[in-house]
Nucleic acid binder design. Structure first.
Lengths: 142, 142
DNA sequence: TATTGTTATACTCTATAACTATA
DNA sequence: TATAGTTATAGAGTATAACAATA
């Protein structure tokens, strides 16, 4: 119970921190999610993108539209399945991802400046364990 | 960097899990935030509530309105400062908080069923450290 | 018939700024 | 003059459902 409170507080603190950066580069939370999900991938379909970001298809159309209007992503009809699109970052989108994402991610690394190698290991181990537990519980609920 | 990814993934997994429950009880994320913040407190002003939930006052008016319409919170003019309100959970709101919150929080405890006392300690220590680091970075940025 | 993505509707959240009533 | 909360506006995300094109 206390753990959940802490996790929630971490999330909130993290969101507060990242939220400022995200807005500074003119993106919304959902748009940033898309950019982050698309970063370091060759691209993917609406369906896949929706599953990864928890954004439903109806919403996705609008979000992608706005990102396309900003020139950050581009769509291409899939060759195999003509119903489907391939969405990928444009050069501009890639730039944003590589420039802004690391900044957002760690406020330039300042957040973790005080962390030693050992701390990182603990944190990673703890979080990956937590993640597994959470996702496992999610599957049970389905 | 990997830590942040993990944290983000935890957040997403957690949000997916809690989001379902939250919607099931007919609340939005913002509304749930308010209920959770108000739970186990005697109540607080709009200002305080806004600071804790990161919801701006303009938005808050609407959110509280909807919660009031649902009979989950009530407002009372403050005695000392007549501009100010005191918002607190109604009996119904308390009930929701005590019944639903723990469910949401741990999907009935299933999430942490496999956790031993030791694991909890590690997680709590790790998260509280992380929280401090994040909030400290936030203050630097102001 | 099932699936991918689009469109439409209605509601909620968000930022912002002008406004009121107290202080 | 400053602060607590309200109102108005415009943009964005959300759930849901009906729809077109393709499978």
């Amino acid at each position: 119970m206390k753990s959940i409170r802490l996790l929630a507080e971490c999330m909130q603190a993290f969101e507060r921190l990242s939220g400022e950066h995200v807005r500074q580069c003119g993106l919304t939370h959902a748009q940033f999610d898309i950019i982050a999900t698309l970063g370091n991938t060759p691209g993917m379909s609406y369906k896949e993108l929706g599953e990864k970001t928890l954004i439903t298809k109806g919403t996705l159309t609008g979000v992608i539209e706005r990102l396309e209007a900003k020139g950050l992503v581009e769509r291409e009809r899939s060759a195999d399945d003509k119903r489907s699109f391939f969405i990928r970052l444009t050069a501009e989108g890639e730039r944003l991802f590589h420039e802004v994402f690391p900044q957002v991610v760690s406020q330039g690394g300042a957040v973790f400046a005080a962390y030693r190698e050992e701390d990182f290991e603990t944190l990673e181990k703890t979080l990956s364990g937590l993640k597994q537990t959470i996702t496992a519980a999610g599957r049970q609920a389905d």
